[in-house]
């Protein structure tokens, strides 16, 4: 464990909690892409099946349980409890355009052709593009609630911090996982446009609105 990985995990946890609180407090999931939330639930489910097979640490197990729990709680909020506030008309990204290539690639490029490892690889590739429906929805509506931009900021920051974690682990432990690193780079690059808008607008107190 190193400081980048710990702050990365905490940033990820903060993002997940911010989203749940935003929906719970405003009793609305306006501006939230249910499709991205489905993809995140699939990412956690396919990645954390090793909860059933191996124990790494109490921290590892508890964080996985929290992530999975919050992911499904978010789905419950978006598609059941606060379904009336879900903006399906703007959440139209074709997720099959993500699932098929990612599914195919996880069979072609992986560390080991075993079910758990292919599912792990699938979850890594899927996570790198899972935010696209959310970013697409913001570009369609042309704006995002400020609390939603904070959610996206911490979500993007977490994988950026993981990139530093992998530099740290390569230097100090000689550990590196090319699949996670390349996917993590793609994932972080997809946020660059949002990071620019967040830093130049939201942090200056303005609302995040895209040129319509």
């Amino acid at each position: 464990m190193n400081v980048f990985r710990l702050t990365g995990d905490l940033s990820h946890l903060a993002a997940i909690i911010i989203l749940l609180l935003k929906i719970w407090k405003t009793r609305s999931c306006a501006g939230i892409s249910g499709k991205s939330q489905i993809l995140f639930a699939v990412v956690f489910t396919s990645r954390y099946l090793d909860l059933l097979t191996s124990f790494i640490s109490l921290y590892n197990t508890s964080m996985k349980v929290i992530y999975i729990g919050c992911a499904y709680a978010t789905l419950y909020f978006v598609y059941m409890k606060f379904k009336a506030t879900y903006d399906g008309n703007h959440d139209t990204f074709r997720v099959e355009f993500l699932l098929v290539p990612v599914g195919g690639l996880s069979f072609l490029v992986n560390h080991d052709f075993s079910p758990l490892e292919i599912l792990w690889t699938f979850s890594i590739y899927l996570e790198s593009v899972a935010i696209l429906p959310q970013l697409f929805m913001i570009s369609k509506t042309g704006e995002a609630e400020t609390i939603t931009t904070h959610y996206l900021f911490f979500l993007g920051l977490y994988r950026a911090l993981y990139l530093f974690n992998w530099i740290w682990r390569f230097y100090f432990e000689g550990f590196f996982d090319m699949i996670a690193i390349v996917a993590g780079l793609v994932q972080t690059i997809l946020y660059c446009d949002f990071f620019y808008l967040y830093i130049t607008k939201v942090l200056k107190g303005k609302k995040l609105s895209l040129p319509a």
């Binding site: 090793d50 992530y67 490892e117 792990w120 996982d177 996670a180």
Partner: peptide, 10 residues
């Protein structure tokens, strides 16, 4: 790359 036993990262 040797397939290390499981992945220790979240």
């Amino acid at each position: 790359l040797n397939a290390e036993v499981g992945h220790d990262e979240l």
